[in-house]
């Protein structure tokens, strides 16, 4: 690990003021410390945010939920309001990592969790995301767990988060503060496709600080679930995951929100998939049609072609569970 200066921020203003040059904000550390040990992240300075008052989880006036950026994954997962009104967020969080990591990892940090691509994580390997212009060793390499949607010729790295898939299906809003003041960004606009600039993963500008995430009021009467598929039974990133929220009336799906993880370069939402479900009867046939649309643009790599079928099964199963169709 390279040497760096260490600053403890006492206030948000403090943190923003210190955010000059090549510095990184540090929250739970589960991504950043890990990547610094791998020499993937080599910041000149670290600003420790952990003393900031950003850990609150509370209702918003409109009946939604405010989740402070420093709220730990464990606390959010077990928060009574989350368990009652946003159970798929709780399920997604509890399916991720381990208890220890969830006790450390923060909501804001998880939003910015970086890919598990082994080539990104190895400083000796070519990686356009880590070292722009160096190439993508994952293409033609060990890419079993990498993306089949949203990829480019420059990057096929998967967004590894479970939380962000649930937040996407829940249509969360990310609140940011920075040198240009405060902004609120729908999560659907927060992540960028790799394109030719895979090093840019979100709309955040240097010095921007995520302060909270808000959720809209829960959809009344909706069924929801988070389904995560992986090789081993626990403590593993998703090969495919699905977060779905479906409202049914008279056997017909009125409203559907679908986000996928483990298969795409960002938490994946395809409005055509939702459109294919809404107004349709909740049957396995219609779910399969939607899965077909979801994967129609899939671009498998040398080792991950099975994800096309796996993702379909994942989505069909999630919709079946959420709508109680057997």
């Amino acid at each position: 690990m390279n040497s760096f200066t260490f600053t403890r921020a006492r206030t948000i203003a403090d943190a923003l003021r210190s955010a000059r040059g090549d510095v990184k904000f540090l929250a739970g550390g589960t991504t950043l410390v890990d990547l610094m040990k791998l020499d993937v992240e080599r910041p000149a300075g670290i600003i420790d945010l952990n003393a900031l008052p950003l850990a609150e989880v509370r209702r918003t006036p409109d009946g939604g939920l405010h989740i402070g950026a420093l709220a730990r994954n464990s606390d959010v997962a077990h928060h009574p309001d989350v368990v009652r009104d946003y159970p798929l967020l709780s399920q997604a969080l509890l399916s991720g990592a381990s208890v220890q990591l969830r006790n450390m990892a923060s909501t804001g940090g998880n939003l910015l969790q970086r890919t598990r691509c082994v080539y990104f994580r190895d400083a000796a390997m070519a990686c356009n995301k880590r070292s722009p212009g160096s190439g993508c060793a994952a293409i033609g390499g060990f890419n079993r767990n990498l993306a089949i949607l949203g990829t480019s010729a420059h990057c096929i790295a998967t967004n590894p988060s479970d939380q962000n898939v649930a937040l996407t299906a829940l249509e969360a809003t990310v609140h940011v503060t920075g040198s240009n003041g405060e902004r609120s960004v729908p999560i659907g606009d927060f992540y960028l496709l790799p394109g030719q600039t895979p090093e840019r993963e979100t709309i955040l500008e240097p010095g921007d600080l995520v302060t909270s995430v808000t959720l809209p009021p829960p959809a009344p009467g909706a069924g929801s679930t988070y389904v995560k598929l992986r090789d081993r039974a626990s403590f593993e990133f998703a090969l495919a995951s699905a977060a779905v929220v479906v409202t049914i009336k008279g056997g017909v799906m009125q409203r559907a929100r679908v986000a996928m993880g483990g298969i795409a370069t960002k938490p994946w939402r395809n409005l055509d998939v939702e459109a294919a479900l809404e107004g349709q009867p909740a049957t396995r046939e219609r779910f399969a049609d939607a899965a077909q649309i979801l994967l129609s643009d899939a671009k498998p790599q040398s080792r991950n072609g099975f994800k096309v079928e796996l993702a379909k099964r994942c989505l069909v199963h999630a919709l079946s569970v959420a709508t109680a169709v057997t």
Binding site: D122, A124, A137, G140, G141, F142
Partner: peptide, 18 residues
């Protein structure tokens, strides 16, 4: 898994070698 181009054991950690 050995990367075919570099010969590196590429899943060389307990998250990727499960």
């Amino acid at each position: 898994h050995y990367d075919p181009r570099t010969g590196a054991p590429i899943n060389s950690n307990l998250a990727d070698y499960i």
